[in-house]
């Protein structure tokens, strides 16, 4: 049996370092016809808030060159429904579960982190970078002091590993990554979407109901890769790299830049089997290049900078 992709991240034994990105894979069950969910590193479930949210009205998605914009606005059934209805239902898939949470105050992140300190949840990802909600969200993701406060509060309330999901909508990603590490985050994941917009030239109106939305897909990959490379130089904690990864080759670039794991987002919409295909591609690459383990290629593109910092 090929164990070249086996890894351990944040106390999770993973059969592969390929995770799914929040908001692009539902609760995992939606893809059960296409993917053996237990073969993934983890499934990061849809962003969860304290109370249910209906999200934004109007058009929520628009295709753009090599990418897409979305302004879903964190529609989700709320933490209680997740814990009582959804979590028991998805246990049968035997997958690592990372729950992505969003709060409108620092305290809310703490409350959510505490609620999710239960069996069946393997880690908590703090979404401080949703560009599509008015309150909270992005504010916590662009101010290093606020990001640190959110991490500290969540860490105080749960024993689960805490991942801070970083926004690319900042001047210096290194500052944000360092703030997360210093505040005690167990890992950072990056990038969330880039803020963008589209205008309909026939109606003279913005295409999206929320006017602006988050850009994802292949178009953002070079930006994401650069930010992972920079963040790797700034912190020692594990990095989950994401942003436009659509193939094994894309994923390999992120490992070479220093990511410990990768997450697949928009590509799941295009090809629901893409995570499995990327795992296969990674195994073939390691064999071809004579590496025993995916861990052997992490950071190789950093040259003398290989390794952490």
């Amino acid at each position: 049996m090929d164990t070249s992709l086996n890894t351990n991240l944040l106390g999770m034994d993973m059969k592969s370092p390929v995770i799914t990105a929040s908001g692009t894979f539902g609760f995992g069950e939606e893809f059960a016809d296409f993917v053996d969910l237990s073969s993934l590193g983890a499934v990061t479930v849809k962003g969860t808030t304290l109370k249910p949210r209906a999200g934004n009205s109007g058009v929520r998605i628009a295709e753009t060159p090599a990418g897409m914009l979305n302004c879903i606005g964190l529609e989700n059934p709320g933490a209680d429904a997740f814990l009582n209805d959804i979590l028991p239902r998805i246990k049968k898939y035997n997958m690592n579960v990372i729950v992505n949470i969003s709060g409108s105050t620092v305290e809310e992140y703490g409350i959510l982190a505490e609620m999710l300190d239960v069996d069946g949840v393997n880690a908590v990802e703090l979404n401080v970078s949703c560009p599509n909600v008015k309150e909270g969200g992005i504010v916590f993701g662009t101010d290093p002091k606020m990001a640190a406060a959110v991490v500290t509060e969540a860490k105080r309330k749960t024993k689960k590993p805490i991942i801070l999901k970083l926004s690319p909508n900042v001047t210096d990603i290194k500052v944000m990554a360092k703030a997360a590490e210093d505040a005690g985050a167990d890992a950072v994941s990056l990038i969330n979407t880039l803020i963008g917009m589209a205008i309909d030239v026939n109606t003279f109106k913005p295409v999206l109901g929320n006017v602006t939305g988050g850009l994802s897909g292949p178009a953002v990959k070079p930006v994401a890769l650069r930010m992972v490379y920079e963040a790797r130089g700034a912190v020692k904690i594990p990095i989950i790299g994401m942003g436009g990864i659509s193939s094994a080759e894309d994923a390999i670039e992120f490992f070479l830049a220093g990511a410990d794991a990768v997450a697949i987002g928009t590509a799941n919409f295009v090809n629901p089997k893409i995570t499995t295909e990327i795992c296969e591609g990674l195994k073939n690459y390691l064999k071809e290049k004579n590496f025993n383990s995916i861990k052997d290629i992490i950071g190789l593109a950093r040259g003398e900078m290989n390794g952490r910092r």
């Binding site: 692009t24 539902g26 849809k46 929520r60």
Partner: peptide
């Protein structure tokens, strides 16, 4: 409706109905 995934994951096509979301 405009759709992303078609599988119920992306929520691009969510609507309100008399029986909820």
């Amino acid at each position: 409706r405009r759709m992303g995934c078609g599988l119920g994951a992306c929520l691009s096509c969510a609507i309100d109905t008399a029986n909820g979301r």
